[in-house]
Write a protein that binds this DNA or RNA. Structure first.
Lengths: 145, 145
DNA sequence: CAGTTGTTTTGATTTACTCAAAACAACTAT
DNA sequence: ATAGTTGTTTTGAGTAAATCAAAACAACTG
C-alpha cells in the first residue's frame, strides 16, 4: 500500500465514493485539496508535473467523475471558465474579484437560512441558493484604484 | 419622427444613454422589453423577423453596447449561454430550473440587505450580491417527478 | 449636406468543452 | 497470481458560444 498518508486518504475518499482509484484521479483530487478554485487547464498543468502523460481530456473526465460523485464542487462564475474545489458538503459561497477574477470562499452568510427565501416562488421548488459576491479583492483595491 | 409610442420610448432610452439610435438597437431593446432572459441566438432569431439583414455578430455588438450603457443586464447561469434582460436598476435575482433551464425573476429576498453580508470579508470590497436559486419550475415538477 | 464618428457586415479565429473509438488499467473472482 | 470484466484514459475530431478585425456603411454634428 501507499506509504504517503495524504495519498492514502485520497484513495480512501475515491473508494468510498465508489470510484476506481487511478493515478490521474488521485493527482487531481490532491491538487484540488491543496489549492481550490482552479479551472480545468490549471488542474491539468499541475497534474502534468507528476503525471506528464495525463491528457487534458482525462482531466475533464476525472473532474466530471469527481463532481458527480460529490467529491468535488464545480462553480461557474460569469466571465470565467468552470472552477473546481475540493471543499464540499458545506453550502459555502464565493466572492469573485471583478478585476482579477480571483475567488475566495465565504464560509456562511449572516442570518443565512431565513433570509434566503425568495419572496415570490411562483410554484418554483427551490433546492439550493447560490450566492456570488462581486467586488474587489484586497490586492486589486490598492492596485486598481 | 416615429409614430409608434413604444419605438419612441426605446429611442429615447438609447439617446439618454448616449447611444446612437440604429434599427438593430431599437429592435434588440424591443425584443428584450417584451420577453426577458433570452440568449444572443434567441434575440437574433426574434430580431431577424423585422430586420432579416441583421447579423448575429451585430446582435452581440448591440447587446454588449446595451449592457455597458446600463440598459440591459446580462446574466450567466451555470450551464446556459449568457442571457439578457431589459429589467435593470433594481437588484433582483433569479430562479433557474435545473431541468429545463428556464429562468424566472425573484423580485427581492426576504430580509434582504442585512442578510447578504458575507461573514468573513478578508479585505474584499463587496459591490453586489448575486443570488441564484436552483430548483424545479412548476412545469418540470409535474413533468419530471 | 458633407464630414466625422461610431456601427454593422463579413469572415476568420479562439476558447472551453464534448464526443467517440480504440488502447489500456483497475478491480473481481477464480 | 492471473484471466476476465468493467470502466478509464488516450487520441483525435468536433461543437457551441463568443470574440476579433477590416472594410462597408449609417447616424449624428456643424
Amino acid at each position: 500500500m501507499g506509504r504517503d498518508a495524504q495519498a492514502d486518504d485520497l484513495e480512501v475518499r475515491l473508494r468510498l465514493a465508489g470510484l476506481k482509484v487511478t493515478a490521474p484521479r488521485v493527482a487531481v483530487l490532491g491538487v484540488l485539496a491543496t489549492s481550490g478554485h482552479l479551472d480545468a487547464e490549471a488542474v491539468f498543468s499541475q497534474v502534468s508535473t507528476p503525471l506528464p502523460k495525463t491528457s487534458l481530456q482525462a482531466v475533464y473526465g476525472v473532474l466530471a467523475a469527481l463532481v458527480s460523485a460529490g467529491l468535488v464542487r464545480k462553480i461557474e462564475p460569469a466571465g470565467s471558465a468552470a472552477l473546481y474545489e475540493a471543499r464540499v458538503g458545506d453550502n459555502h459561497h464565493h466572492m469573485v474579484c471583478l478585476n482579477c477574477k480571483s475567488v475566495e470562499d465565504v464560509d456562511c452568510v449572516v442570518g443565512e437560512s431565513p433570509c434566503l427565501t425568495p419572496s415570490n416562488m411562483n410554484g418554483f421548488a427551490v433546492q439550493t441558493a447560490e450566492i456570488t459576491f462581486w467586488g474587489l479583492c484586497s490586492q486589486c483595491q490598492t492596485a486598481v484604484p
